[in-house]
Structure formats: structure tokens, C-alpha cells
Computed example of a mutant assay.
Amino acid sequence: MNNKLKSLLFAIASIILWSTSATAFKLTLKGLSVSHLLLISSFTSTIIFFVFMLLNSQKNILLILRGKDFKNNLTLGIINPFLYYLILFKAYSILPAQEALPLNYTWPIVISIFSVLFLKNKLTARTIIGLIIAFMGVITIATRGNIFSLHFHNLLGVSLAIGSSVVWGLFWILNLLDNREPSEKLFGSFLFGTILIAFYVFLFDADFNIQLNYFLGAVYIGFFEMGITFFLWLKALSLSENKAHTATLAYLSPFISLIFISLVLGEKLFASSVLGLVLIVGGILIQQIKQN
């Protein structure tokens, strides 16, 4: 099996697993609180990242407690998994999955804006056009197609879903400025983040009464949405002959997610959700063209 085929298989596996995330969120939140889901899933991910650290850079495990690394890990951990998933899971608990999914998927748009603000990237006409198109997608979803009335169906849920993308964009920028190995950064941030989450649960949601199926759902989310899929995706990119084209495959994920949402959750898809997602992804791709 050549590297091109291996890359494609790793990419497809990553996309399919990520595509199940929105459905897994909604199913698991039926029996778990947001904070309990976050604690179990982030703890699962921390174990996964620890294993990868053992396999790839054992000598760097203790460095996460070193001065500068300690500060970076704490900062990243506060942002992700603590704030990001706390906000995201809350959004999914309020909104239909078909709306929370594309609104959260605006994070590449946020990254474009942050790249201009913090990384001094140029604001091109193509970027502006992409932002406008994606913004129209957000409005389409938030108003369920009534874009001229600007009547938001669920302002809190919409704000949380978009807010999660802003938090993720901030995490991405800080992560980009940190030159350590990905496995080291992820283990450090999730270790510190999980400790913070445990304190949060102890203070505000310490009443545990968890059924096994919901516990396993949280483990699934930690294993696949937060954890191992990230490394499958990195493997796909490392084996790819054209990384830009491989990266573009990731934009299939939200559309496949809608299929799972419809078939498994039984949500009747709104035309506004599909159109909004098309506009958001279209706006992102317009910006990406300049990089290919």
C-alpha cells in the first residue's frame, strides 16, 4: 500500500469519526450534565495523549511542569478543553445539533480574523468576501431562514455556539505560537484543563449518578472527538503528497455529520441549516483558495 492510499484512508477515518461527534454530543447529553460529560471525556483524552507522549517523547513528560511550559499548559488548558468544551457542550444542550454544528464550524473564519489581528496577515479582498458569505450563513441558521426579520430563534444557543468558535480560534493562535511537539502541547493542556474541570465539577456539580451507556458515550467522545482522531489526521497529512488538497477533505465532515444527525437523532433537517452550512463552508473555501 503506497503512501497516497494510506493518507487517503487515514483522512477518511478521521472525517468519519469527527462526523459522529455532533450526534454523540446530543445522545450523551440526554443522560449527563455538561460538566460531567466534559470531565469524563477530557480525562479519557488526557490518558490518550499521555500514551502518545510515552511513545513519542518520554523525556519531555516532566517538562510540562517547567516554568514557561507550566504557564503555557495552564493557559492552553483553561482555553481548551475547559472553556471551549464547556461552552460547546452547553450550546449542544440548547440547540438542535444541525444548528450547533455549523455555527461552531465558523472557527476557520475566526482564525482568519485573528490571523490578521495577531499574526499580521494581510486582509485581502478574497478574505473579506469569504467572511461576508460565511456571515450570511450564520445569519441564515440563526434566524432559520428569516434573514430580513433578524429574529433569532435561540439567541443564547447561537451565542454559545459562535462563542465556542471564538475560543477555539484563540486556542489555535496560541497553539501556533507554541513551538513544542503537538503531543506535548495536547497532553499538557488536557492534563491541566482536566484538573480545572475536576475542581469545577466538585464545586458546582458534584452529584454523580451516571448510567453506564452515558458514561461510555462520554468515553467515546473523549477517545474519538478530542483524542485519537487528531493523530489520525496528522498521520494523513504527513503521508500526503498534497497537504492542501488533503486538508480540504475535512470540509466534508459537517455535511456527513448532517446525515448522522438526521438518521440517528431523527432531526428533520431545516433548509436553513443546510443552506447556512453551505454558505459557511463556501466562505471558508474561498479564503483557502489563495493558499493552494
Results as ranks from 00 to 15, higher is better:
Thr246Ser: 08
Phe231Tyr: 14
Ser253His: 03
Thr246Met: 03
Ser253Cys: 07
Ile259Gly: 02
Phe230Gly: 04
Val264Arg: 08
Ile256Gln: 06
Leu252Asn: 02
Ser257Arg: 02
Pro254Lys: 02
Ile259Arg: 01
Ile261Val: 07
Asn242Gln: 13
Leu252Met: 07
Ala236Cys: 09
Ser253Pro: 08
Ser240Gly: 04
Ala247Cys: 05
Glu241Asp: 13
Leu232Asp: 01
Ser253Trp: 08
Ser262Trp: 14
Phe231Pro: 06
Val264Gly: 09
Leu258Ile: 05
Ala250His: 09
Leu239Cys: 12
His245Gln: 09
Phe231Glu: 12
Ala236Met: 06
Ala247Met: 09
Ser262Met: 11
Ile259Glu: 04
Trp233Ile: 02
Lys235Leu: 13
Ser262Lys: 08
Ala250Asp: 07
Thr246Glu: 02
His245Pro: 06
Ser257Phe: 04
Tyr251Trp: 03
Leu232Tyr: 09
Ser240Ala: 13
Lys243Met: 09
Leu252Val: 06
Ile261Gln: 00
Glu241Lys: 14
Trp233Pro: 00
Leu263Met: 13
Phe260Glu: 06
Leu237Thr: 10
Phe231Leu: 15
Pro254Met: 03
Trp233Thr: 00
Leu252His: 03
Ala244Asp: 11
Thr246Pro: 01
Ser262Glu: 10
Tyr251Glu: 04
Leu263Ala: 13
Ile261Thr: 00
Leu263Phe: 10
Val264Leu: 13
Ile261Leu: 03
Lys235Thr: 14
Leu252Ser: 04
Ala244His: 15
Leu263Asp: 03
Lys243Gln: 14
Ser238Phe: 11
Leu239Asn: 12
Ser257Pro: 02
Thr229Leu: 01
His245Ser: 15
Leu234Glu: 15
Leu249Lys: 04
Leu234Asn: 15
Lys235Met: 13
Ser262Gln: 10
Ser257Lys: 00
Phe255Thr: 04
Ala247Glu: 06
Ser257Glu: 01
Leu237Gln: 14
Ile261Arg: 00
Trp233Arg: 00
Phe260Ile: 07
Ser253Phe: 05
Leu249Ser: 07
Asn242Cys: 12
His245Tyr: 14
Ala250Pro: 05
Ala244Cys: 14
Leu239Met: 10
Leu249Val: 08
Ala247Phe: 10
Glu241Asn: 15
Ile256Ser: 08
Glu241Leu: 13
Ala247Gln: 05
Leu232Gln: 02
Ser253Leu: 09
Val264Glu: 06
Glu241His: 15
Ala244Ser: 15
Phe255Lys: 09
Ser240Lys: 05
Leu263Arg: 06
Leu232Met: 10
Ser262Val: 03
Leu237Trp: 11
Glu241Gly: 14
Ala236Leu: 05
Ile259Val: 08
Asn242Phe: 11
Lys243Asp: 10
Phe230Leu: 11
Ile261Ala: 02
Ser240Pro: 07
Ala250Phe: 12
Phe230Arg: 00
Ile259Trp: 04
Ser238Gln: 15
Thr248Gly: 05
Thr246Arg: 01
Ile259Asn: 02
Lys235Tyr: 12
Tyr251Gly: 03
Ser262Ala: 11
Phe260Cys: 08
Thr248Gln: 12
Pro254Gly: 04
Leu258Pro: 01
Ala250Cys: 06
His245Thr: 13
Leu239Gly: 10
His245Cys: 13
Ser238Ala: 14
Ser253Glu: 11
Ile256Val: 12
Ala236Asp: 02
Ser238Ile: 12
Thr248Asn: 06
Leu258Arg: 02
His245Arg: 15
Leu249Thr: 08
Ser262Leu: 10
Phe230Gln: 08
Phe260Met: 09
Thr229Glu: 01
Ile261Phe: 00
Ala247Asp: 06
Ser238His: 11
Phe260Ser: 07
Ser238Gly: 14
Lys235Pro: 09
Glu241Thr: 11
